[in-house]
């Protein structure tokens, strides 16, 4: 059986799955709009959480929170479920799609056989949408792939019950009630408010704008503190987190710029076109940082690529982002 579900490739899996599910029920939703209303943009440099022994830098909010926020903002009722019993988890999945309801799943990327080797890590927050079953295989809209894919039941079961950090525990989610009319302008403003608040006022020095400045100061000292080799590993990790599959480029800054552009139309407010352009140039600065960092990793760094020079770019980004969020916050009050 196959549900009439439209697959769109997107940059990021959770945005893509969320946008796809909402659009399925007749409310046209782009990935960027989902990301914006879901208040996905973020920054955090969290040295005490380690990934492969290297500090975590994040450019987006915690997984699952975009889906939760967007559905709440738009008044969509959702059903989510986790399982202990693997067989039950697969049976309920089958029952739900048999009713014609597309189902979002949280999975561990390691076990998905259609993933290219490069993306096979023990990463447990990969979202996809199941929209059909044929024999023993599921039809899957995996948001980061250009076309729908097929996955055998046994592999999908393993992916749903991947172990390790943030294990999915068979988590599935679907929409149970979608209103015919949604208040987009209001949802957009709320989404922007949440982002500006987190980026400007989060009461921790490693989060938001102060987090970017904190990283800048740390980064400048990496070679002295960690030694040359380890400093390069730290730099490499930073680029990977920024440009990893799913960010749409520049640590989600370009997706957010696309959202601001769409917001201009919905709010009928041309100021947002200028905000979008500013976010684009901030994204370009992030990309410039990645270029310089990569030159270091490759051993081809010139004087303009030194650690203090990179720290300076980060400080500049922090200043630009701070100003932009202040202006954005001002534009959505009332």
């Amino acid at each position: 059986m196959k549900i009439d579900y439209t697959h769109h490739q997107s940059a990021h899996c959770e945005n893509g799955a969320t946008a796809g599910l909402i659009s399925h029920y007749g409310v046209e939703m782009s990935e960027a709009m989902t990301f914006g209303i879901g208040a996905g943009l973020f920054f955090g440099y969290i040295p005490f959480i380690r990934l492969n022994h290297l500090p975590l830098t994040t450019f987006r909010v915690a997984a699952g929170s975009i889906f939760k926020r967007v559905t709440k903002e738009l008044g969509i009722k959702i059903e989510t479920r986790k399982f202990r019993d693997q067989q039950l988890a697969m049976d309920i999945l089958d029952e739900t799609i048999a009713k014609g309801i597309p189902v979002g799943l949280q999975t561990g990327a390691w076990w998905l056989p259609y993933f290219p080797d490069a993306y096979r890590f023990h990463f447990n927050m990969h979202n996809l949408v199941v929209f059909g079953k044929k024999g023993d295989s599921y039809l899957i809209s995996d948001p980061v792939f250009p076309e729908p894919v097929i996955c055998r039941a046994d592999d999908l079961r393993k992916a749903r019950f991947a172990k390790g950090a943030l294990a999915p525990k068979g988590k599935m989610y679907c929409l149970s009630e979608v209103p015919a009319q949604v208040d987009l302008p209001n949802a957009i403003k709320n989404g922007i408010r949440t982002v500006t608040k987190a980026m400007l006022k989060y009461p921790l020095p490693i989060i938001g704008i102060s987090g970017i400045r904190f990283l800048a100061k740390r980064l400048e000292r990496w070679p002295a503190k960690l030694g040359e080799d380890n400093a390069l590993l730290h730099l490499g990790q930073l680029i990977r987190m920024q440009e990893e599959i799913g960010t749409g480029g520049a640590g989600f800054r370009f997706i957010y710029a696309a959202f601001l552009q769409e917001a201009a139309t919905h709010l009928n407010d041309d100021r947002f076109i200028a905000f979008s352009a500013r976010m684009t140039s901030i994204g370009d600065r992030w990309r410039e940082l990645a270029v310089r960092a990569a030159r270091n990793c490759k051993g081809r760094a010139g004087t303009e690529d030194s650690f203090p020079a990179m720290a300076k770019i980060l400080m500049d980004i922090a200043a630009q982002e701070e100003e932009l969020y202040r202006d954005l916050a001002g534009a959505v009050v009332e």
């Binding site: 997107s10 940059a11 990935e31 960027a32 290219p116 080797d117 490069a118 370009f254 710029a257």
Partner: peptide, 23 residues
């Protein structure tokens, strides 16, 4: 590294509009 898989990036076209471009 992507081994042929193209992923979506966001970029600005000639009119200044955001479009999704495979990379």
């Amino acid at each position: 590294i992507a081994d042929g898989l193209k992923e979506v990036t966001y970029a600005v076209n000639g009119n200044g509009d955001y479009v999704m471009v495979p990379s």
